[in-house]
Simulated assay, not measured.
Amino acid sequence: MASFQKYETKDGIRWMYKYYGEIDPRNGKKKQSTKRGFKTKKEAQLDAAKTEQELANGTFISEDKTLTFQQLYEQWYSTVSSTYKPSTKKAVQHKFNKRILPHFGNLKVKDISKAYCQDVLNKLAKEIKSVDNMRMYANQVFEYGVRMEIISKNPLKGTIIPKLEEDFLADKKDEERNYWEKNEIKKFLALVKQECSLRDYTMFHLMIYTGGRKGEILALRWSDIDMKNKTINFSKTLFQENGEFIALTSKTAASRRSISLDASTVDVLKKLRREAASEPLVSFELPGNHLVFSRQDGTPLRLAYPNDRLDAIIKQHAFHPINIHGLRHTHASLLFEAGASIKEVQERLGHSDIKMTMNIYTHVTKAVKEKTAERFEKFMEL
């Protein structure tokens, strides 16, 4: 049975109650606890009745009032990180350290309210486009606390991802276009072929003509390419940490795929293979486990190398600015322009979720949109 008592604060009279909750494992006796801050005795009595009912039902959770979000995060991470690949661990830690912990880390979990969580989401939405991803990770920490009966509720539950005004605009600025159109691709490849090494030209050619991810391209070995049957097998991705390189298995089954190559891409690869075979440190019978793209000593290229080369070329020759992932979007856009179906593009790019492919489809080139209008016009003329 709870006992009630009033006390004075700078804000006036408040009520508290004492109750006997969980059993202390050290002596086998129930621990006495106190809940404070009620404005009236009636409020305290109602809360006490709820607490006693939860104790009777075995659903009561006695929260650690000193637990911070940082501590809860560390418990969660130590539990789930064993299921992560090194690349995923690095990405998750970066997201928490840069975006989530600055807002939540030092706060006591019991003090984190739904209103505060919504305020954080509103601020993040103005800073980054991936606010839904940040919310997903923070939510996992809170849900872990609830499942482990460390906290009684998840304050993120019911919060909303805000939409900014520009999300509702029909037209996006051209500067936001993260892909190249066919004429831009031809100009870029012609320039790279003239000014860059055969290795770099082949690397960019392969990204544009296969839609392969940067890590997939840099992890390729000659055994992954079948020149005779004109196929390439993407099953690994290159990961770099502390100066060391690791070839990791692709994250999803959809990412592990074999796709067809066009004749021009096969010819470019054959030229690179002949050049690699002529290097003094490499035998003519090139082993299949040699990297397709490597430094002179056979070690992998830096993961940032394609980004650096692309940025330099764009800046020097005033190309429309895109990032390295934009070459993958470019491949998808050209496939759509050539008449490929959404399902075909999904399989070629290795998307596990067709929503990823649909997001690219909404940003297809002007030529595709014009062809759609032309098809409608011809249909109406029939």
Rank of each mutant, 00 (worst) to 15 (best):
T249M: 03
S62P: 00
R135M: 06
I313Y: 06
E63P: 00
D311E: 05
K187E: 08
V345C: 11
I161A: 03
K29C: 06
L191S: 01
Y20G: 03
E143M: 03
L46N: 09
N122I: 02
E8C: 01
E143R: 10
T68E: 01
K270C: 10
I208N: 04
M227G: 03
K95L: 09
R295S: 02
E166M: 11
V192D: 03
V345K: 07
M134D: 13
G350A: 11
I360K: 01
S62A: 00
A219G: 14
N183P: 12
I13F: 10
S352E: 08
Y144F: 15
T265S: 08
A219E: 08
N133V: 08
G28Q: 14
I23G: 04
L334Y: 09
H329L: 02
K369W: 14
P102E: 01
T237N: 13
A125S: 14
D174S: 10
S352I: 03
K271I: 12
T159N: 05
F38T: 09
T202A: 13
V266M: 02
A253F: 04
I61N: 06
D224N: 15
G105E: 08
K187H: 12
A276F: 06
S264L: 02
E143K: 09
Y137A: 00
K369E: 05
C117F: 01
G58K: 07
I150S: 09
L220M: 06
N289S: 12
N242A: 11
I259P: 01
T202Y: 00
L121T: 07
G288I: 15
E8I: 08
V368R: 14
Y73K: 03
Q118L: 02
Y179E: 07
Y17R: 07
R295I: 05
L349S: 08
G212W: 00
V345H: 08
P321Q: 03
R135Q: 14
Y209I: 08
K271D: 15
R221M: 13
R14P: 13
K173G: 14
Q194W: 00
E176R: 11
F38K: 01
K355N: 13
S264N: 02
S130V: 13
I322D: 02
E175N: 15
L291D: 09
M356F: 06
K42E: 06
I112E: 00
K50M: 05
Y77W: 13
E279D: 15
D353V: 11
D297Q: 09
D132F: 11
V266W: 00
V192Q: 11
M134E: 11
S197D: 05
R221H: 11
K85W: 13
L169F: 03
D11H: 04
Y209S: 10
A48S: 08
E241S: 05
F168L: 14
K10M: 10
E166H: 14
A138M: 03
R375S: 14
N139I: 01
K378F: 07
G298R: 07
I100H: 02
Q71E: 15
S87I: 02
A277P: 13
